[in-house]
Design a protein around this nucleic acid. Structure first.
Lengths: 123, 123
DNA sequence: CTATTATTTAGCTTATTAGCTAAATAGATT
DNA sequence: AATCTATTTAGCTAATAAGCTAAATAATAG
């Protein structure tokens, strides 16, 4: 379960153009990264990529992208898995499910509340 | 439909502790604001409040809260409705529904993609 | 028309964030 | 061991954001 601090970190991580684009492209599979052939192919999913191949898509220096990825990892919206000397990056789907649930619950509870209040005020 | 810029604004707006708390409390109805008796009660919902009554809940100066509210309004996560000389503030439920939908779709499409990829790689 | 209440705008200061380059670290390859 | 590749850390600068007070604006009330 995400507490307030967790959620703020997640929104902060997504509230920056560069990080948002990185995150979005993790989903659409826009980064190519050669995966070591000695590892079984299904060990790392298609969307996985490494820091360098993400950085190549941007006009920013590699350390800048590295810092952004660290922030996204700290916010738990991505995972970074070391494999040999590369780090494979994937979106954290469990957290996305939680966030989706938070918004859905928020809307539902609000609408229930509004209905309750309408019952009350309209005599 | 929300474009990328819209979404980044929304996440930026929610990625700050003060704004997050303001927003959250709009849902839980934690702000009291005297509603003009000459207007029908159901004209403004229970969760509506005004700038001053929000500012009272924080140790920040009123203009600071006013600026935060402006940013939240620009991000369209709240509405601000002038009524006499007060401004009533409500969460924007339609936008929340859209955001909930974005995350739900993201997760769904990703999981469909992963299943497809598994079918491909596992001989 | 003056005063009061509610809110915003302007202008300033400080803190945080986002970028950079150079150097350090980690692991793999020769 | 030396080198190459991948990534992070350190230390810096510039831009942005968040706070403040004082003044301006808007509407209502007296």
């Amino acid at each position: 379960m995400l507490n307030m601090e967790d959620k703020i970190k997640i929104f902060k991580a997504l509230g920056n153009e560069t990080r948002f684009k990185i995150f979005k492209t993790l989903f659409t599979g826009g980064y190519a990264c050669s995966i070591d052939e000695s590892k079984p192919k299904d060990d790392i999913i298609a969307q996985a990529t490494c820091v360098t191949s993400i950085a190549e898509q941007f006009d920013f220096a590699l350390p800048t992208i590295s810092r952004h990825l660290k922030e996204m990892k700290d916010a738990k919206i991505i995972t970074m898995t070391k494999n040999k000397n590369k780090i494979y990056i994937e979106p954290n789907i469990e957290i996305m499910k939680e966030i989706a649930g938070c918004f859905t619950t928020l809307v539902k509870e609000y609408e229930d509340g509004v209905i309750f209040q309408f019952d009350n005020t309209k005599k």
